[in-house]
Amino acid sequence: MAALPCSKTKPFRSISLPVRSHPTTQRVEEVLNKLNGLETSVTATTETICNSLLGLEELQKCTDDLLQLPQTFQIISQRQHVKWFEELLGNSIRILDVCGTTGELISQYKENIRALQSSFRRRKGDSSAEAGIARFTSFSKKMKKDAKKLVLSLKQVDCETLTAAFLETDQETIAVIRALREANAVCILIFQMLLSFLSMPLFKSKHPKWSLVSKLIHNGRIELEGLENITNMETKVETFEAQLDSIEKRLEGAFRSLIRSRSSLLNVFSS
Rank of each mutant, 00 (worst) to 15 (best):
I133E: 07
L227R: 05
N51F: 11
R135I: 10
Q68D: 03
K141D: 13
G125E: 01
S21I: 04
T235Y: 00
F269C: 06
K34A: 14
Y109F: 07
R13F: 15
N232C: 01
V237G: 02
R250M: 15
A242P: 04
T235W: 00
R27M: 13
F166M: 01
T45C: 09
I177H: 00
E86C: 09
Q108N: 13
E57G: 10
E241S: 08
V157S: 07
K144R: 13
D245T: 13
K206Q: 14
S246G: 08
R79V: 04
E30I: 15
K61V: 10
Q74D: 04
S21V: 01
K249R: 09
W84C: 10
I222K: 04
Q71A: 04
N267A: 15
D65V: 09
G55K: 06
F139N: 01
E57I: 06
Q71K: 12
E160M: 14
T46M: 11
E225G: 00
I76H: 06
Q156P: 04
I95A: 05
E182I: 14
A254D: 13
A165R: 12
T45K: 05
R181L: 05
L258G: 00
K149H: 07
S214P: 08
V176D: 01
K142F: 11
L202D: 09
L150D: 03
E223S: 07
A129K: 08
I188A: 05
L89G: 06
D64K: 14
I174T: 02
S127L: 06
K142W: 09
T235R: 00
S261M: 14
E47T: 14
K155T: 02
T43A: 12
K204S: 14
E252S: 08
D64A: 12
K145A: 10
S271G: 15
K142C: 11
F73D: 04
G55D: 13
K149M: 07
A175D: 01
K236R: 01
F197P: 06
R13H: 15
N51L: 15
T161H: 00
G90S: 03
N219H: 06
G55Y: 09
I259D: 03
L216R: 02
R262T: 13
L266E: 14
N33Y: 07
L69V: 00
S52V: 05
Q74H: 07
K206M: 12
R20A: 03
P208C: 10
A164H: 10
L195W: 02
P5H: 12
S77K: 12
N229K: 14
F166K: 00
T102E: 05
E241Y: 04
K206W: 12
L265W: 07
L88C: 10
F240D: 07
G253D: 00
V237M: 01
N112I: 07
L162I: 11
E252V: 05
L154F: 05
P23V: 15
